[in-house]
Write a protein that binds this DNA or RNA. Structure first.
Length: 514
RNA sequence: GCCCCGGUAGUAUAGCCAGGACAAGUAUUCGGGCCUUUCGAGCCCGAGACCCGGGUUCAAAUCCCGGCCGGGGCACCA
C-alpha cells in the first residue's frame, strides 16, 4: 500500500489521527494562560529605530505562533512615537524580516496614526484630574521621584491643566519645557508609578507625520491605549517591561479599558554575539565589520547571510526556549544543530579544498567520473567531473601525508603517496573503494574554481573584549560545479561544512557551521 | 542607594504554583562504538546538574527564612 493510499484509508477510518500530526508541531509550546480558541489577539510591536535582530525574531515568532495556535489574530504595530529615533527604512526592514520568518499578520498600523485619539484620551485624564502639566526640569523630576515627593504642579486645577495642555499643543512651550504627567503615587514602591510623564514635546519631524505633531505620547501611554484599541488579549514580551504592567493596567483602568494577560521572559543572546546596538556599533566603528548585515551579527540579515534558515529559528524558538526569567546565553551549537537537521537532507554536497596543495597521480588514465550530489537524496542528481593527472587536495590532509600512505579520492580512486613536497606525488592504486582508508575530497586542477569562504566567529571574547579575529577567510579551490551554485543556495562542502553562496560575481561563500 | 525578578549538567530547557514513583526527563555538547565512498546524517552506549546554609515535613529541586551570585527598573527611549 502506497503512502497516499495509507493516508486516504486512515482519513476514512480515523481522521483525527491525521489531524494530530499537524497539531503536534505547535503543541510543544506550553499553553497560554487564559487563552480561548478564536479569541486570542497578540501583537508584534517593533520600534522602527534599528535593525531587526534575533530577539525581535523570537519574540515575534512567539506572538505569531500563539495567535495561530488559538486561531486568533496578530497585529503588526510600529511603536513609532519617538520622532527622533524612528527612521523610515526600518519600517520595511521589519516587515521584510517578519515575512522571511514566515510570520503572517492580520492587521497593521502605526502608533503615530492615532495621535488625535491619544490627545482625546489625554484630555479625558486631565478632565478627571488624573493628569497634569508639569514644567519642572528633567533633573528635578528625577530627584523628586527618587525621594518620593510631589511638585507644585501636581496641585493645579483641571482648568489650569487644560489651558496648559492646550499651550503644549499650540506651541507655547518649547521642547523640554513641559510634559503631561499622570497623577500616580509619588511614594509607590514601583517607581514607574511615581507620576510618569505621559506626553512630551518633540520639535523634530516624524518620518510619517512630518511636523504635524509636536506633542508625542510616551511608551506606557501609547501602549496602554493601543493594546486596548487592538483588542490585545496577551502580551508576550521581554522582562525589562515587567515593572510597567502595573502602570499600563492603571492607565487603562482609569479609562475603563480591559487589561491583557502578560507573559514575560528574559532577554537572551548568543554567546559572543551581543544584541546591544552600542556593542555592535563599536564593532562597526572599529572597522572589524562594515555593515549591520554582517554574518557575525545577530541581525536578521546577518543570520540569513550566515545560512541560518528561518525554519531553524522557528524550531529553535519552540523547542529550546521557555518562559524563564533567568538570563540566558545560548550556545551557537544549539541553533546549528537545528539548522543542520533541516539542511542535511536537502543541501548539495560539493568538493572544496581549503588551503589547496597539488597532488599528481601517476599511472591513472584519466577520464570522467560521476558523483552524486547527495548520499541519500537521489533527487538532487549528480555531476560528472573530468579528471586527469593533477588535483588539488586540502592542505591539512596533504600535510598529514607520508610516503607509503594509502588515500582514497572520494568517488574516484585510491592512490599511494610516493613523496611529499610542494606537490604530492602519488601512484594510482585502483578505483574500487577500500575499507579503512582515509577518504578525502579533491578538485581537478584544470577545472578548479577559486573559492573564498568567510567563517564567522564570536564578536566578543568577553563582556567588553572585542575578538579581533571574529571573521576568518578560507581560500581554496572548488570543483567546477561550484559555479552552478545559486546565490543564497546553501551547500555542504564535504568535510568542511555547510556554506551559503553570498555573491554571484565571485564564488564567495559564508560558512554556517559544520 | 531603593525596588522588582531570577539561580536545575559546559549550554538551553522539563519538573516547582497543587511536596512523594525525580537514585531528576529532553536537546545540545563531549567521549566510545556501529554504519557510511564526508570529519555530515543516522543508530547504540557513556559522561555530566537541583547556588549555599538553616527550617517545616514521614518525605523538599519543589514550601519558608537567611546568605551568596546574576539580571532588570528607578528616562521628557521603547
Amino acid at each position: 500500500m502506497g503512502l497516499e493510499e495509507q493516508r486516504r484509508l486512515l482519513g476514512e477510518l480515523a481522521p483525527e489521527l491525521l489531524e494530530e500530526r499537524r497539531v503536534e508541531e505547535e503543541k510543544k509550546l506550553p499553553p497560554l494562560p487564559g487563552a480561548e480558541k478564536g479569541k486570542v489577539v497578540t501583537r508584534l510591536p517593533p520600534e522602527p529605530s534599528g535593525y531587526m535582530h534575533v530577539g525581535h525574531a523570537m519574540s515575534g515568532l512567539l506572538n505569531y505562533l500563539y495567535a495561530r495556535m488559538y486561531e486568533g489574530r496578530l497585529w503588526l504595530r510600529f511603536e513609532d512615537t519617538d520622532p527622533r529615533k524612528v527612521k523610515p527604512e526600518y519600517y520595511e526592514s521589519f516587515r521584510k524580516g517578519y515575512r522571511w520568518l514566515g510570520i503572517e499578520w492580520d492587521h497593521e498600523k502605526n502608533n503615530s496614526d492615532d495621535m488625535e485619539l491619544f490627545y482625546e484620551y489625554a484630555e479625558r485624564l486631565i478632565g478627571m484630574g488624573k493628569a497634569y502639566v508639569c514644567s519642572c526640569s528633567v533633573e528635578r523630576v528625577r530627584e523628586l521621584r527618587r525621594i518620593g515627593e510631589e511638585c507644585e504642579h501636581r496641585g493645579q486645577d483641571v482648568e489650569t491643566n487644560l489651558r496648559l495642555w492646550e499651550g503644549m499643543l499650540s506651541g507655547r512651550f518649547r521642547e523640554g519645557e513641559a510634559t503631561l504627567r499622570l497623577v500616580g503615587d509619588m511614594k509607590h514602591k514601583n517607581t514607574t508609578m511615581r507620576d510618569p510623564a505621559l506626553f512630551r514635546i518633540v520639535e523634530h519631524p516624524h518620518p510619517l507625520t512630518g511636523t504635524r505633531y509636536r506633542v508625542w505620547p510616551l511608551y506606557d501611554f501609547a501602549v496602554s491605549i493601543e493594546d486596548h484599541l487592538c483588542g490585545v488579549t496577551h502580551v508576550l514580551r521581554t522582562s525589562e517591561f515587567a515593572l510597567r504592567d502595573e502602570l499600563q493596567n492603571y492607565i487603562r483602568s482609569l479609562l475603563g479599558m480591559r487589561n491583557p494577560i502578560y507573559v514575560e521572559y528574559s532577554r537572551f543572546e548568543f554567546r559572543g554575539t551581543p544584541v546591544s546596538k552600542r556593542k555592535l556599533r563599536a564593532i562597526i566603528e572599529s572597522g572589524l565589520a562594515r555593515s549591520w548585515d554582517d554574518p557575525r551579527f545577530p541581525t536578521i540579515e546577518g543570520l540569513r547571510r550566515r545560512g541560518i534558515l528561518p525554519e531553524a529559528i522557528r524550531e529553535f524558538t519552540i523547542t529550546q526556549t521557555g518562559f524563564t526569567y533567568a538570563e540566558r546565553i545560548y550556545d551557537w551549537s544549539l541553533l546549528y544543530a537545528v539548522n543542520r537537521k533541516l539542511l542535511d537532507p536537502k543541501a548539495r554536497r560539493l568538493f572544496f579544498t581549503p588551503e589547496p596543495v597539488k597532488l599528481r597521480v601517476r599511472g591513472f588514465e584519466g577520464g570522467e567520473v560521476e558523483a552524486p550530489y547527495h548520499p541519500e537524496n537521489k533527487e538532487l542528481g549528480s555531476r560528472r567531473i573530468r579528471v586527469g593527472e593533477l588535483y588539488y587536495v586540502p592542505g591539512p590532509d596533504a600535510r598529514a601525508m607520508r610516503p607509503g600512505d594509502l588515500v582514497r579520492l572520494k568517488y574516484l580512486m585510491n592512490v599511494r603517496v610516493l613523496s611529499v613536497g610542494e606537490v604530492v606525488e602519488a601512484e594510482f592504486q585502483g578505483r574500487e573503494p577500500l575499507r579503512d582508508v582515509k577518504i578525502i575530497q579533491w578538485v581537478p586542477v584544470e577545472d578548479a574554481v577559486e573559492v573564498e569562504v568567510l567563517v564567522p566567529g564570536p564578536l566578543y571574547l568577553d563582556e567588553d573584549e572585542i575578538n579581533p579575529e571574529s571573521l576568518k577567510v578560507v581560500k581554496g579551490f572548488g570543483e567546477s560545479a561550484v559555479a552552478s551554485v545559486d546565490v543564497d543556495e546553501i551547500v555542504q562542502f564535504e568535510r568542511f561544512g555547510f556554506c551559503r553562496r553570498d555573491r554571484g560575481d565571485k564564488a564567495v561563500f559564508i560558512k554556517a557551521h559544520d
